[in-house]
Amino acid sequence: MRETWAGLRRSAAALAVATAVLVATACGAPPSADERGEDGGGAGARGGTPGAVLPGNSPLALVYRGPAACDGCPEAAHDMLEHDGFTVRYIGPKEETRFGPDALAGAALYVQPGGTNGQEVTTAWGLLERDRGFSPELVRAYVRGGGRYLGLCMGGYLAGEDPGYGLLPGDSGQYIRSQGAAVTDDQDHLVDVAWRGHPQRMYFQDGPYFDVDGPDVDVLARYTNDRAAAVVASYGAGRVAVSGPHPEAPSEWYRDYGLSDESHTGLGLGEDLLHALMGTPANPIS
């Protein structure tokens, strides 16, 4: 992954140097990573700019972990991101890195993972809003200023409007209630999608579709009823990627629900989604 991320690292490093010259007195120390990149960030997550990189030349991703996420969802996102060359830390009410004015400033990417089975979008949003220091505008301002947002399943719903961050040029909706949906209940399934025109099967549990339009919208995947399943779009100077199915789903998720294991395929699709989001080259989907 070192060569894959080289362009991102060079541009991020140049931006970080320029920013340090302009606002050196306002910046904290750059974040330091432990071997696994799971130390929570603490004060080291403050300062810098969206797209900053760590001393080991890997971009920093902050993954939400808290009551608005399901058990195992932040960890699955962590593993997918780490597999693709990120240093990953968690942000949330019980993590060392917590929401606040500077919490996202040193991150290349903020990730909103999946939610608990059966959890309403309004419930997840309410749990986020109870987190001291959190506000939707913190995330919006981060992305608008050049940051990146990745929303997986519940995180895709929350990229939409009311309730949500309002990061999409459109909105999210419940796929299982859409006309012609191939899956019509909230149980765990494999769902068929066309990813860049190629048929794929992905882990799915009551994920969203995306009703979006605009010149800077890239629909990477569609469900069989032609609803958008994975999208990358611009928001201000930043970018947003959302997926209704779970590319990050590990083997045990498939095994637990008696599904054919598509985790290796999912990782490849997740890599494509991440590279489209970050603007770095990825391997072709076949």
Rank of each mutant, 00 (worst) to 15 (best):
S135V: 14
L127S: 02
T123Y: 01
V143R: 04
G146Y: 11
Y149E: 10
G126R: 03
E129I: 15
V121A: 05
F134T: 02
G126C: 06
Q119Y: 01
R132C: 07
N117G: 13
G147C: 12
P136T: 03
R140C: 07
T122H: 06
E129D: 08
E129H: 05
T123L: 05
L127R: 12
G133H: 07
Y142N: 11
T116F: 01
E137W: 09
T122N: 11
E129Y: 03
T116G: 02
L128Y: 00
G147L: 03
P136W: 06
Y142E: 12
G146D: 14
F134R: 02
R144D: 09
R140D: 00
T122V: 15
N117M: 08
D131L: 01
P113V: 15
V139K: 00
E120F: 08
F134N: 01
G145Y: 00
G118R: 11
G126M: 11
G114V: 12
V143H: 01
L150E: 10
G115I: 13
V143I: 05
R148W: 12
R140G: 02
W125M: 06
Q119V: 08
V143D: 07
L138V: 02
G145D: 13
V139L: 05
G118T: 13
G114N: 12
G115N: 13
D131S: 01
E137T: 06
E137S: 15
L138E: 08
G133Y: 13
L150V: 14
L128N: 05
E120T: 14
L150D: 08
V143P: 06
R132H: 05
G145P: 11
S135Y: 11
P113N: 13
Q119S: 03
R132Q: 15
R132I: 14
E120N: 02
G133R: 08
S135Q: 11
N117R: 15
G115A: 15
